[in-house]
Deep mutational scan, measured.
Amino acid sequence: SKIRITWGDKTWEWDGDDEEVWKRILEWARNLGDEELWRHVKEWVDK
């Protein structure tokens, strides 16, 4: 399956939905430097 994140007018996609993928997404969000996006992603990961 895919994980799709839409933020503003951008959309990103990742293949898979296991823990490793979420770790990569969390790292990606942090590297993007958008605090609010990172917080949202972290909330999803922690669920």
Score class of each variant (00 low, 15 high):
R24Y: 07
N31F: 07
H40C: 09
L37T: 02
I25A: 05
T11S: 12
W12T: 05
V41E: 00
W28L: 03
E20S: 13
R30I: 11
G33W: 04
E20P: 04
L37Y: 04
E19P: 14
I3P: 01
T6S: 11
A29G: 03
V21M: 06
G16Y: 15
G8K: 11
D46Q: 04
A29S: 05
K10Q: 13
T6K: 08
W12Q: 06
E19N: 09
V45Y: 15
L32N: 08
L26V: 07
D46H: 02
W28D: 01
D46I: 04
S1H: 13
D15G: 07
D9G: 12
W7Q: 02
E35K: 05
V41N: 00
T6V: 13
K42F: 14
D46G: 02
E36S: 07
R4E: 13
H40G: 15
D34Y: 05
W7V: 09
W7L: 05
E13R: 01
D34M: 08
W38C: 06
T11H: 08
D15R: 04
E43Q: 04
I5A: 01
K10A: 11
V45P: 03
V45C: 06
W14G: 03
D46Y: 03
V41I: 14
I25Y: 01
D15E: 13
K47V: 14
D9R: 01
D34R: 02
S1F: 10
T11Q: 08
D17F: 06
E27I: 09
D17N: 12
W38Q: 11
D18W: 07
H40E: 14
L37G: 02
W14M: 03
G33L: 05
V21W: 03
W22R: 09
W38P: 01
A29W: 02
R24I: 13
W28C: 03
K47P: 04
T11V: 14
E36H: 07
D15T: 07
K23M: 09
R4L: 10
H40M: 14
D18F: 06
D46M: 03
E43Y: 07
G33R: 04
I3C: 02
E35L: 08
D17Y: 05
W22K: 09
K2S: 15
G33Q: 08
R24P: 03
W14S: 01
W7C: 02
K10S: 12
K23R: 10
W44G: 01
L37Q: 01
G8A: 09
W28F: 08
D34A: 08
I25W: 01
E20N: 12
N31V: 09
L32I: 12
K2V: 13
E13S: 07
W44P: 00
K10W: 07
W28M: 02
E43M: 04
L32D: 08
E43K: 02
N31S: 12
E35I: 05
K23I: 08
T11L: 06
E43C: 12
H40N: 12
K42R: 06
W28Q: 01
L26I: 08
D18H: 10
E13I: 08
K23W: 04
H40K: 12
A29E: 00
L26E: 13
G16E: 09
I25F: 03
A29K: 00
V45L: 11
D34V: 09
W44T: 07
R30P: 01
K10H: 12
D9C: 08
K2Y: 12
